[in-house]
Simulated scan of single mutants.
Amino acid sequence: MSKKLLAGVLGAAALMMGAASAQADEPAKIGFVYVSPIGDAGYTYQHDLGRKAIEEKFGDKIKVSFVESVAEGPDAERVVMNYAKSGYKAVFATSFGYMNPTLKVAKRFPKVAFEHATGYKRAANVNTYQARFYESRYLTGLVAGSMTKSNIIGYVAAFPIPEVVRGINAFTRGIRAVNDKAQVRVIWTNSWFDPGKEREAADTLIGQKADVLTMHADSPATIQAAEDAGIYAIGYNSDFAKFGPNSHLTSSVTNWAPYYVKRVGEILDGSWKGNQDTWDGLSADMVQVAPFHKDVPQSVRDQVEQAKADIIAGKLHPFAGPINDNEGKERVAGGQTMSDGDMLGFNWYVEGVVGKLPK
């Protein structure tokens, strides 16, 4: 081989090695898909705190993007597809209605890691994850049941899917543990984020004499309605105290950051595996209870803390029998506890919830 040819070969090899090295040094691209605006509090806000946690943890090893207010359905598929086509290593799809679009895209991009929040369908490159929201819901129910005077508690709810029904039932179980005269009235908005509908539902419940409100929705409208009416409210996903300084008793708070840090760490070190499901709660600090309003008596705070410790220790379960539905039928016998599978399929109200569950 001539010196000139050898020099050319070595030069080409050096260029290839340089390109490979540069590619190896490029940050891993991570994408997030949000169902509502990030805002100042709520479901999407908490996921975005998790996004910020991975940026702080991994720095220039990753490049993170997000798209907010992505409608469930075809638009979600478009956004997830764009990430996959653009060389992203992982996509976190953070809403229940993103499940099928995510699975569809995942089939076309088997080398991309997909993570879907609150769903139940998995694949070789798709994991699911959610929080045991019902544990902290039960704890905040203890507060609501202790603080109501009218014994009517209002609940502004998004969609009648098992996740939301499970939260209503756990909250009611907490209420009834301390106040068997209290009832929960539910109004459905059929939207994860619609401040106008949420406010209208909250005002309607106030008109029905509810003196404590809570919600499964992503805006502060319910808390603000309670503040304006001079009654109490309990938040969800975030600490909503700044939206109701006089009304906000506490919140059920979701902490996604540890999960995101764990999964992104696995993606970076090559140990990430698909087809996994994570369902963590108080024991993993994935759900928490926000600080209490000054009006909450110390005795109630102590009761909440004891119940929290008992749930973590396995001494207390929000869905331990006996449990009747709101039509008087026994659903869980005494000495029995609902399985995860049964809780994941909740399609009935517990005793204490007024009305029929929409089909």
Rank of each mutant, 00 (worst) to 15 (best):
I153K: 00
V261Y: 02
D239S: 07
L249W: 07
M16I: 15
M17A: 15
S136Q: 03
A225R: 01
V126I: 04
V64L: 14
A7Y: 13
D40T: 07
K121Q: 13
S36R: 06
T337K: 13
V91S: 13
Y138T: 02
Q224C: 04
F32Y: 11
G154E: 00
A217G: 12
P74H: 10
P110M: 05
M215P: 00
T44K: 02
H293V: 03
K52L: 04
Q224A: 09
L6W: 07
P27F: 03
K181S: 14
P160Q: 09
D218M: 02
N324A: 10
T148H: 02
R331A: 14
W192S: 04
F32V: 13
A22T: 08
A84V: 08
G31V: 03
V184G: 12
I38A: 03
R185Y: 00
Y45T: 06
Y349F: 14
Y129C: 13
V353I: 15
E135D: 07
G11W: 13
A131S: 10
K29A: 07
V178I: 11
S339V: 00
P27E: 08
V67H: 09
S339G: 15
A117L: 05
V164R: 08
E77I: 09
I187K: 15
K197T: 10
I231Y: 05
G145C: 05
I161K: 00
K104S: 11
P258G: 07
Q303P: 04
D48I: 00
T250F: 01
A22K: 15
N255P: 06
R137V: 02
R108L: 06
I175R: 08
N237V: 12
A233E: 00
A19K: 02
I187G: 12
V9D: 03
I30L: 06
N246Q: 13
M17C: 14
H116V: 15
A284V: 15
G145S: 11
A290H: 02
D48C: 01
T204I: 11
G244C: 02
V261R: 11
L103A: 01
A12D: 10
M17V: 14
G50Q: 13
